[in-house]
Amino acid sequence: MTNAVDIRSISRSFGRTRALEDITLSVPDGSICGLFGRNGAGKTTIMSILAGQDRPTSGNAKVFGEHPFENSSTLSKISFVRDNQRYPDDYRLHHVLRIAPRFAPNWSVDVAAELVDGLRIPAKIPIKKFSRGQLSSIAIVMGLASRAPLTLLDEPYLGLDITARALFHDLLLRDYSAHPRTVILSTHLIEESEALFDRVIIIDRGRVRVDCERDEASNLAFTISGPADAVDKLSTNRRVLLTHAAGGLRSATITGEASDELVLQARTLGATISSASLPELVAAYGADAPESTLIKKGARA
C-alpha cells in the first residue's frame, strides 16, 4: 500500500517552544485517520506542515511523495481549513462557495449544496458574525466538497450541534465510499467519532505516542481498579500512564495487554481489569509523564 503522508523525523520550534519533536509517521492512502491529543499537543502544527502552510524546523514531510511547501500541484490535492480560519470582513457564504472551487479541482457543487442546506448555514449574514458552530459548518463544506485526495479536518466539530455532527458523519462516509480519499481528522470528541477511523495517532507534547490501526488500539492499555493495596500490588513493575484514587479505591491505566493470569490474580484480590477504551487511552497519554515508551505498530512502507 502506498502512503498518502510520509513524515520523517520532523521537529518544529516556535522560539523556545518545541511544538513538534522528532515526529515520524505515515498515513496509508485511502485511510480515515484520527489524530488525537490534548490542546497544544501539536495536532494543528502537523496539519499546517502537511498543508504546506508551515515548514518544519528540521526533518521532512511528504504528501503523495512530494514536499507540499510552495508546490502548487501537490497543494491542489490537499484541503485544509484551520479551526480558526479567517475570512475577509465582507465575505458571505456565496463568496466562499464561488472562490473555493478555484483551489479545489474536484469540487462538488452537489455536496456543497447538500451540506449548506443540512447544516443550515446562513446566506445573508457576513461570515465574521458567524457563531463558532456556523464557522465549523462552513469549514466542513470546504473540507468535504473539495474531494481533495488528502483532506485535513482540524476540529471539525467545534461548537457543532448533534444533528449537524451526525449529518457530517453520514456525508463523510457516503462521499468517501463513492470517492475514496485520505482523511486526517483531529477531534476531542473521540467516543462519538471513533468508529469512523481505521487508524489512530495519539500525540502528546509534540511527540507521537501511539500510531496504529484502530483495532490494535484496544489492546494497547488496560485499567485495573479496586482496593488501593490490590491495585498497587498488581501494577508493580508495570508502565502506569494514569492513576486515579479516592478514599481506599484506586485505578491505574497500564500499557500493554493484561494476561489471563493477571486477570485471575486481580479477581482473587477483589480488583477488576478492563481494556482501555480509545478515549481512556487518549486521556491516559495526555496525563502521562513525557519520558515513557513509544507504542508503534502496524505495517507501513
Partner: peptide, 14 residues
C-alpha cells in the same frame, strides 16, 4: 458492507 458502514457510521474498511 457499504450499507453497514453508512448505517452504523463506521469506517468502510472496518
Amino acid at each position: 458492507a457499504t450499507d453497514f458502514a453508512a448505517f452504523h457510521r463506521m469506517n468502510p474498511a472496518t
